[in-house]
């Protein structure tokens, strides 16, 4: 017994689940539908696994976006400052100190993996903007994927319920 998958895949290559229009037609030649049920259950698990992975990725992006926004905001502020300004900055968690900042034309960006690099300020701005755009569009794609996965999970659930109902009705008739 093999479920026939439709050709459609979403833009990230997630396959669309098959929908069983009529269990009668699909099962007319077989005695026992348990193989079909287990096939559907496996499919269900695959979708759930993808759902868990995508949810995690989407959470990661969700927490990254506000940080990127703040960095971009600060860099843009620095770009606008043509003269000295005073600031209360966070020296450490809950500890603030006052600093006088001269106008700057470079900033240091923490790139991750223990690397910090100096950038001309306009390049830093471009870099942060690109990163923010990437994160935002990545999050949109994640959301789309999650919606698609949910739809497919529903389809598989409907299929499974139908096959099980069909089996129950059939065995009742068998007893009669």
């Amino acid at each position: 017994m093999k479920l026939e998958f439709p050709d459609y895949r979403n833009p990230r290559g997630i396959p669309q689940a098959p929908f069983i229009d009529s269990v009668d037609d699909l099962c007319k030649d077989i005695e026992d539908a348990s193989e079909l049920v287990s096939e559907l259950q496996q499919l269900f698990q695959k979708y759930q696994l993808m759902q868990a992975a995508t949810t995690q990725r989407s959470r990661g992006l969700e927490s990254k976006i506000p940080d990127l926004r703040k960095s971009l905001e600060s860099v843009e502020f620095l770009m606008q400052q043509k003269s000295q300004f005073k600031t209360r900055y966070e020296l450490n968690d809950t500890v603030y100190a006052t600093a006088v900042v001269d106008p700057v034309d470079t900033v240091w960006l923490w790139l991750g993996a223990n690397v910090m690099l100096e950038y001309p300020i306009s390049e830093a701005e471009t870099l942060l903007k690109t990163k923010l755009e990437d994160a935002t569009s990545g999050l949109e794609k994640c959301t789309e994927d999650l919606e698609f996965l949910r739809e497919n999970i529903t389809t598989v659930e409907v299929n499974t319920a139908r096959v099980i109902n069909w089996r129950v009705t059939k065995s009742k008739h068998g007893i009669k």
Partner: peptide, 11 residues
């Protein structure tokens, strides 16, 4: 003190 990013700037 106006908040820009994570720090306060005196404006």
């Amino acid at each position: 003190m106006y908040k820009v990013g994570d720090c306060f700037v005196l404006l």
